[in-house]
Structure formats: structure tokens, C-alpha cells
Design a protein around this nucleic acid. Structure first.
Lengths: 185, 185, 185, 185
DNA sequence: CATGAATGAGGATTCATTCAT
DNA sequence: GATGAATGAATCCTCATTCAT
């Protein structure tokens, strides 16, 4: 639906810019160029909208990260590509990180944390598990590998976005190499 | 000041539990056992309170992390200890991570990001730089080393707190070893 | 708009009775039989409401004062009629004088004083100027004539409303005659 | 008392600048360079302070207006001098007019209006009555004469202060002459 | 006399939500 | 489907006043 898309984009942009408690429904409606009533036509409440947006974001992120992945390729190559895609997506779409971050660090998370996946981390976990099975990486708990993969990626993006440091391609490769050195068999 | 302390603690607890826009000043006052007016006696506005709390948290965190550190010790040992302290502090004081995380992922950050330090990361950066100079770790940009150190630590704590995985001492050591393997010379 | 009218009337009455800082929005809403939110739907803030009410009052006053005026009539007759209308309106609608007076004697005035007209005084000025041109009154600066016309009228109304003295028709005519004696050619 | 004077002056200045509901006790205290408690040492409440200030202002005004008056002089001369003093005082001390005006146009007035005099009008009334007895002015009700005297004077000052028109000595004389023409025998 | 930290009732304003059109 | 006027509970903040020092 066109209007739903507009509502999502509007919400994403406003939350990025003004935060959760800085983006009232009225503004979301205005920037999406729809009436307030229209939002309530598609979403039961503001919370429902937030949760729906959460799912939407997760899906978008996952699709991008794994867009060129293939079991055919060598694991190391896939590992590098995935990590870079992860970083690339959020650097290019900071409003996604902004929103997901605020979502994660808010009480919303507890409601979303059922068996639901978070931010494509499960896909990533599965991928890392493959690496263990294939004998490409050390036989470590997937949680540990996830922590290393996602933790460094998220940290890198934030450092970049907060303008603390602009990482170039070479720098990014240095980081992956460090991680890879740490987990490779 | 006793009342200021009480206000800080109250705010921290409530934001941890209910989030930024779930903790009204009235509740902060009630849980700190002071009148609303008293908060405004010490802080110009809710925002000012948040900023002051931010500084307070940063200081507390930094003090804890570096509490046993000493130049005398071997770098690897210090590295392990610091990383564990970092993780330990936030696991034991989840309301600090909760608050800082919400702070960082909100528009507040931009106002706090002058040349101000963030979350003791600079101290960490300085520490990592020492490692490079001492020839203990690879000659990498401090930003890269910081990303690896802090990214994994934060990610570990979150995974732990979100109940996705309870890391025991052994697991934590596995993680540090992976990182150390990646950055050691 | 019906609701806006109700809000205006309610505000006027309450300010007359309790003064500016004695009439909260909640009371205005209650007496206008609308929700507080409705007021904010039509006016950005309490100040905006006050300014809008100011314009509304000015218009009402001017309309009443000049309701029967006509260039056809003799100037003296018009002069007497206008002055009496002025006094009559405020005596019959003391809440208008109350509000306008409080408005004028507050810092609001400075914000309203651009090239905006005040209280229909300009129409009065124009009228008095006609008198000069027609050779009916002395060739005095319009400001002087205005001061005499409005000053005496306002003072009369206040003295009447403050119950210091109840002016009857005859008394009022005495006053106009004094003024007329002073300015006639 | 020095502190009381300071409190009066501070209140007068702030009310002139920010209006009644723009001048909190805290500001009055700060600008008077005393503690809040000190104000409550001298005045039971804010209302008491306002009433005391009202009396103070009235006294100051009356003293200035009649400072050079003398029964020896000719009535016309006295009339001119008084009217000019009245105008002069308020033009030179706009904060007095500001305060008194806000006082008169607020519900405070009703509480002050017992048999109390207002703004030296009674002295003025008495003076005008002398004029009637002396056969200098028409045999009109004192209320009428007062309206003409005070109404024109106040209106002149306001017009001057609101920067609508800067009256010079000659203009002011024109006004008094008009009034005098109207009331003289 | 003088202070100012502490209080909390009260006021302006916001904003998620409803519902008649 | 779509609208947006209307609602009022909830929030931030102010400020007159008190009282222990």
C-alpha cells in the first residue's frame, strides 16, 4: 500500500530526527501527507505502528545484507561481504539504525522479544553456525561469534555516524581482518 | 548532595524500567522522595536533569572500569581486566546501560557531542593506544581497536541482559581471547 | 465559527471578572463548553487567543460606534453621537473595556503595536480630521483632538463603571458640551 | 526602610516590563537584591505587597503633582501647572503609570475601592471644586470636571508613551487650552 | 532580621485517540 | 477508504509560600 509506505517513511525520518517522544502522530500524518485518521485506519495504535515498522525495518535490513550471499562462495568471502553489507546498509540508511536502536533500548523490546528474531541477528547466527560446521571458524558458541560480528559492526556504524571517525574501505577491511583473525580456525 | 543523588537514582531506575517517555517528573519526584519543585530547584528542566545524569553515569562507569588498572601490569592482563570490568559493570548495573543507550540513540546525543567524552570511550582509546606503543597489539588505528573492544563488550552485555544468552566466566573469556587473537601482535 | 465565538465570549467574561492571571484555560474551556484541546485547535497558545480576542473586540467596538454615522449629518451632531456611542458601548459591555484596558496596560500591547490600529482610535482620528477640514473645529493636531475625545470618554466610562459616579444623560451631555466648547471653532 | 524601597522599585520596574503575571516574587527578590524570605518579612503576601506599592505610588504621585501648588496663585495658572505636572510625572516615570494602570484594570481595584482615594484624583477633585467656588470655572459637577482633567491627562501620557505621538510643550499647552476653554466661566 | 532550600497546588500545553461525515 | 475537528488525560513547569537555620 502506498499510504502505509508513506507512513513508515515519515515515521522513520521523524524518529531519526526527533526521537520517539519527539514525533507525535500528528507530525507523522502531516509528513506522510495523510490524515491522522488514515494512520488509525491501518494501525490500531501508535504502538502497533511502531511494532509494524520494526518488522518492516528488520525485513529490509535482512534483505539487503544477504542480497548477494550464496552457499557456493567460500565462507571467508561471504563473511567479509556480509559484515560489510551490514555496515554499509546502516551508514547509508542511518534512520534505520536510529529507529532500531531506540526500539531496542526502550521497553518496546520486551514486548517484541518473544521468539521473534531481532534485526536479522538470527540469520546471521545461522550463517556463523555454518562457518563452524564447515570448519572455517573456531568451534565457539554461536552467541560468541554473533557478539563479535554484530558488536563490531554496530559499533563501527555508530562511530561513523556520530562523526567520531570516518572509516574508509581500507579501515573497514582492517576491522574485518581483525575479527577474522580472532575467529578463524 | 543527598537529594540530587536520590533524584539521579530514581531517574535511572525509572528510565530503565519505563523508558524516557515513560518516566514523568512526577514519578521521579515520588521515587526520590522529594517534591517536584525540588527537582526544578537543582535542574532547570527535564532535559538538564538528563544531561546531568549523563555526566554522572559516565563518571561512575569510568571509575569502575579503571579501578584496579595499573601501568605496572602487563598489557594483556590489563586488557582482559578492563574488558571484563566493562562488561561486569553494565551487567551488574543494567540501568546505566539502559539509560546511556537511550541517551545515545536519542537526539540528546547531538547536543552532548561537543568535544565531550562519551562513556569513557576516550579513556579506553588512550589505553588501547598504549598497547600499540608498547608493541603489545597490532599497529592499528585507535578507532579500529576501540570498535573491537567496545563493540564486543556492549554487544555481550546486551545479549546477556536481553536474556538471549547468559554468558558465564568461561564464555566471556572465550570472547576476550577471540578479540585478543585478532589484535595482538 | 460557533466554538470560536463561545471561546471569545467565555474569555471576555472571565477576564472581566478575574483578570488576566485569574482566568486559566481550563475555566475558559469549561465556560465555553468545549474541551481544552479545542481551544488549542483554534489558537496556538493562550497569547494567540488573547491577540485574536483583541482584534475581535476592536472590530466590534468600531462597528458599534460608527453604526449610525453618516457624512450627510452635521459635524457637531455626529461628534455628539459618536462620543455617546463610545461611552454607551463600554458602559453596556464593561467586559470589553476591562479586557482592552488590561490588554493596553500589559506588555501584550507592545507586540500588537506595529502599524496596527488600536481600538478604533484611528477611525476616530480620521473623523476628527474631517471636522477640521470642514471648518467645524479648531485647526488642532489630530492627536490633540483625539486625546480630548477618547480621554474624556474612557475616563467617563471608568468613573461610571467603578461606581464612583453614575452619569445620567444630562451629565453626559454636559461633558460633551465642555469638550465641544473647547474644540469648536 | 532601605530594603522595602528596593523591593518597591524592583516590583515597579518588573511589572512595567513584564506585567503582573510576568513578575514572580523570585524575580522581585533577585532584582531587589534580597532573599525571598525578606519580602515575606515585610509583606504578608504578594497581594499585600501590591497593595502597599499602590499606596506608595499614589503618595509619590500626589506629592509631585502638588509640589509647587499654592492657594495664593491664580486658579488658571494653578490649573495649567497641575495638569502639566500630572502629565510630566507619568512621562518621566512610566513604570508608575504602568503599575497603576494594571492595578486599576485588575480585580485588585475592587478590593482597594473602599472609601480610599484613587491616584490623587480626590485631591484633584477638591482642587477643581475650589475653581467652581472661586467662580473661575463653570458650575459643573466635580465628576465632570475630573473626567475632563484626568481623562485628557492620562490619555495624553499614554499616547506619548506608546510612541503614537511625541507631544512637545506647545502641543501640551494647546491641550490645556482646549480644556480650559471648555470649562472656564 | 535575613536567608534560600523545599514544597506542591495549579496552570499551560501536548498528543494519542475517537467519530461523525 | 479517508478525513480532521474534537476530546481530555497526562505532562512539564511555575511560583507563592513556608520554615529551619
Amino acid at each position: 500500500m502506498d499510504k502505509v509506505q508513506a507512513i513508515f517513511k515519515s515515521t522513520l525520518r521523524l524518529i531519526h530526527q526527533f526521537g520517539f517522544h519527539g514525533t507525535p502522530m500528528s507530525q507523522i500524518a502531516k509528513h506522510a501527507d495523510v490524515a491522522i485518521g488514515t494512520i488509525y485506519h491501518y494501525f490500531e495504535s501508535k504502538d502497533e505502528l511502531i511494532f509494524a515498522l520494526f518488522k518492516y525495518c528488520k525485513k529490509e535490513v535482512a534483505e539487503y545484507i544477504f542480497k548477494d550471499d550464496s552457499i557456493e562462495k567460500e565462507f571467508k568471502e561471504r563473511f567479509f561481504a556480509l559484515w560489510l553489507n551490514f555496515v554499509r546498509f546502516y551508514i547509508d540508511n542511518p534512520e534505520y539504525l536510529s529507529f532500531l536502536d531506540q526500539f531496542y533500548s526502550s521497553p518496546y523490546l520486551q514486548q517484541a522479544l518473544t521468539n521473534e528474531t531481532i534485526c536479522g541477528q538470527d540469520h546471521v547466527s545461522a550463517f556463523l553456525h555454518e562457518g563452524v560446521n564447515a570448519g572455517a571458524v573456531k568451534n565457539l558458541d554461536t552467541n560468541i561469534l554473533s557478539v563479535v560480528f554484530i558488536g563490531t559492526a554496530v559499533s563501527t556504524v555508530k562511530r561513523h555516524l556520530h562523526s567520531l571517525h570516518q572509516f574508509d574501505k581500507k579501515s573497514l577491511n582492517h576491522i574485518i581482518e581483525v575479527i577474522w583473525d580472532g575467529i578463524k580456525k
